[in-house]
Computed example of a mutant assay.
Amino acid sequence: MGTRVEQTDIRPDGMAGFSYTSVSASASAVWKLGQRNSFNLAVTRSSRAPQVQELLSDGFHHATRSWERGNAALKEETSYNLDLGYRFKTDWLRAELDLFHNWASDYIYQRRTGEFLDEEGTGDHCDTEHCVPVLQSSQQDAIFKGYEAKLIFPVLENHLGLLELTLFSDYTRGEFVNGGDVPRMPPLRYGLQLDYNKDKLSSYLRLTRADDQTHVATSRPRLPVITCSTWASITKSSLARRQADGVRQRQQPAGPKHPQRRVLSAQFRAGSGAWGGSGISLKLLIRY
């Protein structure tokens, strides 16, 4: 069991401030049925204050290609959550299944107003081809339910290292209590992942397939656009980044030293550019 109380105060210039006191609590239990099977149950209440951009934003957002407007009347978002899980473990297989059902009060989301503006905020002579939609921060009661599932197979474990194959899938259904679909919900996803570990080296290759989202909010029309994107990067571990930036933390008692590690990551995505369209992604990550 646990409880958390968080105080959030926002003091913008030239207007009245915002103050929120968010209270969250949780309780969970695990039942083991022999050496191979176990069930877990968790009941939680989570609350969060609106973010600054949800309250006060009013401008063009390059990443989402939209004009975002905040809402100073937003209240705290509160969710009551029920999670049921099952675990199965043998030498040749590990299985994990989690079911969840969440009741969200005053769920914060972005609602299309039907307006269109250009990047300067002007709506004169605007159309959907050369301007972007206006998204307004709003609140409604909503219900979310879904699952997450994994099957993990040890393929190889010897002096060459550990190789595991994971089959996974997840799905979330979001509906407003008063009717309608919650926008920007992920579709059914499934795929496989190969994990390899040996000494300081750890890596995985993950292939994910996303189906069409059949429950798209009516305010988000589909567009027949196909997109492809790739990226790759090499970064240091968080410890190395802190040292490179010259950030010195408060002196701590001497303890075990953690080796600095680098991360190589690359990803390829392809699919429909419209929200809710199907797609596929391939991701590679190596830590060494």
Rank of each mutant, 00 (worst) to 15 (best):
D9K: 14
A16N: 11
S24V: 09
A25D: 03
K32T: 10
K32M: 06
K32A: 13
G34T: 12
R36D: 06
F39Q: 06
L41E: 08
V43E: 05
T44G: 02
T44P: 01
S46Q: 13
R48C: 02
Q53K: 08
L56S: 08
S57C: 02
F60M: 12
H61S: 13
H62I: 13
A63Y: 13
T64P: 02
S66D: 05
W67L: 11
N71Y: 09
K75N: 11
T78A: 10
Y80D: 12
L82H: 05
D83V: 14
Y86P: 00
R87I: 04
K89I: 06
D91T: 12
L99W: 13
F100K: 13
H101F: 07
H101Q: 09
W103L: 11
I108A: 03
Y109R: 02
R112L: 13
T113C: 06
G114L: 03
F116H: 15
F116Y: 15
L117I: 03
G123I: 01
D124H: 05
D124I: 08
H125I: 01
C126F: 01
D127K: 00
T128W: 00
H130A: 08
C131S: 12
S138L: 01
S138C: 02
S138Q: 11
Q140T: 02
F144A: 07
F144K: 06
E148V: 11
K150Q: 14
L151C: 00
L151T: 00
I152F: 00
F153E: 02
V155T: 06
E157Y: 05
N158P: 05
L160T: 08
G161L: 11
L162T: 15
L165Y: 01
Y171R: 10
T172M: 11
T172Y: 01
V177S: 09
N178D: 15
D181H: 14
V182D: 07
P186E: 08
R189A: 14
Y190M: 11
G191I: 07
L192Y: 10
Q193T: 10
Y204C: 01
L207C: 05
A210P: 00
D211V: 04
D212E: 14
V216I: 15
A217Q: 05
A217I: 03
V225R: 11
I226R: 14
A232Y: 03
A232M: 10
K236A: 13
L239S: 11
A240E: 12
A244C: 00
Q249N: 07
R250P: 03
P253R: 03
A254H: 06
P256W: 09
K257L: 10
K257D: 04
H258V: 15
A266I: 02
A270D: 01
A270I: 11
G273T: 12
G276K: 05
K283G: 09
L285E: 14
R287W: 11
